[in-house]
């Protein structure tokens, strides 16, 4: 996963960063991170298609791309709220409350996305 770098020092830094992430991040957060990566890749692919080929079913592009962006924002906020290290910042927000917010936000987002699909 770590990109190959020509400089050994830079390679070393990236390697240690990756190692620290693998070791110190819980599986639950990695699970969420995987979803974030997926959303980002999917959004980039759709955006490339819109720019390079055609935006012809523009509503479909809007629906797909905005669902990626919106879901990314919701998931990122879920991740920051359930991260145990951020406990002091979100004292009154329990992880359950965060997940309930995430579920409600996702349902509303998906409703609008399906409206755009046409």
């Amino acid at each position: 996963m770590a990109p190959k770098s020509s400089s050994p020092a830079a390679s070393n830094v990236v390697h240690s960063l990756w190692k620290a992430y693998s070791d110190q991040t819980s599986d639950r957060l990695k699970f969420i991170d995987a979803f974030l990566v997926f959303l980002m890749l999917s959004g980039v692919a759709q955006f490339l298609y819109c720019i390079l080929i055609t935006d012809y079913p523009f509503n479909a592009f809007l629906a797909g791309f905005s669902s990626n962006v919106g879901q990314f924002v919701l998931t990122a906020s879920l991740r920051s709220q359930v991260n145990p290290e951020n406990k002091n910042e979100f004292k009154e927000v329990s992880p359950e409350r965060a997940f309930a917010d995430f579920a409600l936000g996702s349902i509303v987002l998906h409703f609008f996305v399906y409206n755009f699909l046409g």
Partner: peptide, 30 residues
């Protein structure tokens, strides 16, 4: 609509993140 081959290529490209997602989830599923 663009020609069929281009559509097919980009369909694969747009669907490929699912492979990444499932692969990563397979490693880290809590």
């Amino acid at each position: 609509l663009p020609p069929k081959p281009i559509s097919a290529i980009f369909s694969v490209l747009v669907l490929s993140p699912w492979v990444v997602l499932l692969g990563l989830w397979a490693q880290t599923a809590p």
